[in-house]
Design a protein around this nucleic acid. Structure first.
Lengths: 197, 197
DNA sequence: GAACTTTACTTGGATGTCAAAGCATCAAAC
DNA sequence: GTTTGATGCTTTGACATCCAAGTAAAGTTC
């Protein structure tokens, strides 16, 4: 993130005062929430990306590799990656292109569905993502600048925001089925470099 | 945002379980915080940008216009805009270029410092940003999908995150001086269209 | 006053986001 | 079996982010 000297006042608090002065008090809380999330995102993304530079990764690509590393077979259809990471298909294509360029992922054809492209993590992809994860765990993830209670509080409230946005079904029963079914989409291994058989 | 059907489970909770299984429990809370903020950012930005489409604005440009609209003289140096919005100088240049292209902002020379470019909001800039603000107040800001207590809680914790990132000085005394001094950088008006004199 | 340092901004490039459109393929309906 | 609808992915383009480098101008130091 751009090195910067602290401002003498909280710019978001100042914006909130301006919102009230403009007569928009009812929406001031929502405006403050939105701009706070925007700034928090920027701070955290900057820290994460800085940590990943030595591994030749960005957070977007790191997430894709983590998902593949955690999957049962080390490979997933691109559509499944987009669904799980909740990004646009074009973003998945972009990330996979770059990971393929760097040798961390290989594209495979689906054995029975010719619409589908499979992304398969390679040996060097596994190596780099595990090393990157360790670096993140020691840095941005291990010490995000808030204590455990604060983290749990924000995570709980944001889970409600995500539920409200229809990210996932609220049923705890649905949770119990989690992860046990999703990468069944990749159930018969094709020959591919780095694919675990 | 890309229309999407809810997943049957919370992908971030699933990621947290994976993190624990990998033996990285100590960092799981931080990882969950980071990915929750990332997703919340995406949800909120998508709502805000969708609201702004009819005004020909994005959130980045909207923020610049709001800052100018709230400033005392309707004009600010680009460096001040970057400082207050906490974005990179190149991002400010980009936003001002687009706002100038659309006639919402004019670039003015600084009367005494030739390094400095002033951005001055135009009449149509004021009109569009106020209409856009109303639309946001009725939509994304007025009903962000959380109740007031939840919003206040998240905002308070994220303020601490921003303070920890040196966004602003923690002193309440500094706050008292807020806003009364910053756009003093633009203290002698130059003739410019839309400039309030 | 000259030399050096800092500041302001722009440009070019890399990155990642999503919308829109298109093509190929598979699924469903008849 | 044919037609229609849905799905998967890619490509293109618009947008915004920041890094790095460069130029011009102001400030500081000697």
């Amino acid at each position: 993130m751009t090195p910067h000297r602290p401002l003498r006042f909280d710019p978001i608090e100042e914006a909130s005062r301006n919102w009230h002065r403009a007569g928009w008090g009812d929406a001031a809380a929502g405006m403050t929430l939105v701009t706070s999330i925007m700034r928090a995102h920027q701070i955290l993304l900057s820290r994460v990306d800085a940590t990943l530079v030595p591994f030749g990764l960005t957070f977007a690509r790191f997430e894709v590799l983590m998902l593949l590393d955690f999957s049962r077979t080390g490979r997933l259809p691109l559509s499944k990656i987009g669904e799980r990471l909740q990004v646009h298909p074009a973003s998945v294509t972009n990330a996979i292109n770059r990971l393929q360029r760097d040798g961390f992922v290989a594209r495979l054809e689906h054995p029975t569905d010719r619409r589908t492209t499979l992304a398969a993590i390679t040996r060097s992809g596994r190596r780099v993502v595990r090393n990157a994860a360790k670096a993140l765990n020691e840095g941005a993830f291990g010490d995000p600048g808030l204590d455990r209670d604060q983290i749990d509080t924000v995570v709980r409230v944001l889970a409600e925001l995500r539920r409200d946005a229809k990210d996932f079904e609220p049923s705890p029963a649905a949770d119990a089925v989690a992860g046990a079914r999703d990468d069944l989409a990749v159930d018969d291994g094709g020959a591919g470099d780095g694919a675990r058989r």
